[in-house]
Design a binder for these strands. Structure first.
Lengths: 168, 168
DNA sequence: TATTGTTATACTCTATAACTATA
DNA sequence: TATAGTTATAGAGTATAACAATA
């Protein structure tokens, strides 16, 4: 970090030779690959999210699970997993962890005892208020970082890529 | 899959009750979370990429490594890793795999024998032609899926998110 | 026989600490 | 002492097969 500053200073001293620092890397066609730029962008956003949510000891996927249950109380476990693109087999441990923390409750259906509906506990509902606040703060940081117009331009085409349809 | 078609047919039969299939899931604020939509979009794009590159037995990250080496022959291992956002410690095995397949060559610098420059082998260079073609076909599939305008709208704001600066 | 949820398992990705060889 | 690269390891994330309980 300090090294960059030193190099800048040096370049200012010996003005003419525009050789400031190591030669930049040529990304070739990489930045024309949607998958690559998408991946790097996702990692950058998750990094901020992750730091913001470390105080709650929650990962992005856990926030998405809790949010879906909050808005669809009683939805069968399998349908929650499916809606989030998580395989049911990997979803078992996720729900287990949230249940162990007393954030989520599982209730077997009386009509079909194979089905286990998911609900937030009181503690879970209370926590969601804080989580949504943290999430909104996080969104605003990203917005400030890239500018309002860039931020708002992203959602519509991204949903098209992700879900194959417009925002709806 | 067939189930959806059956439900559609049934809904068409008993026209009035607009109850076609299970009630849709409410995503709540999730689709207003840039990280969530970004993640789902990235997964969707990688899925197509992954299928397209399975014929070459290459993963997305490996394609990015080969492309960077192709455009920066001799670049030290650590700088390749850094440019791609990969930790040097995890990069060792990646390069090892590509070297074992005779796609990449490592050449110790004569000025500083700690540094190992990376180069494509002949075989690697030959392969890149096919890889770039597969990658371009993949891009065109995504473009067709979401439309030209949505596709082109994405790059500039995504680069801002990912790298903190405009396309440049 | 099909569906919901489960266990076991394996492979990839990512992160940290400690090491080597060079400088 | 600092840097480039390495090893070992542990934790997530993701994928498949096989199973129990229920319908």
């Amino acid at each position: 970090m300090d090294k960059v500053l030193k190099q800048r200073a040096k370049a200012t001293e010996c003005a003419p030779p525009r050789d400031a620092g190591p030669s930049p890397v040529d990304y070739g066609p990489l930045k024309q690959r949607l998958g690559y730029v998408l991946r790097r962008a996702q990692v950058a956003v998750f990094q901020d999210f992750f730091e913001a949510f470390s105080e709650h000891d929650l990962r992005p996927a856990q926030y998405s699970v809790l949010t879906l249950i909050e808005h669809n109380p009683g939805l069968p476990q399998g349908r929650v997993a499916e809606a989030l693109g998580i395989q049911k087999t990997n979803f078992v441990a996720m729900i287990g962890a949230l249940k162990d923390r007393d954030l989520v409750r599982r209730e077997p259906s009386k009509q079909d005892r194979r089905i286990h509906g998911l609900f937030l506990t009181r503690k879970g509902e209370t926590l969601m208020v804080k989580l949504h606040k943290s999430a909104q703060d996080h969104e605003m940081r990203i917005l400030k970082r890239i500018g309002e117009s860039a931020y708002h331009e992203l959602f519509s085409p991204l949903e098209l890529v992700a879900f194959g349809k417009d925002p709806g």
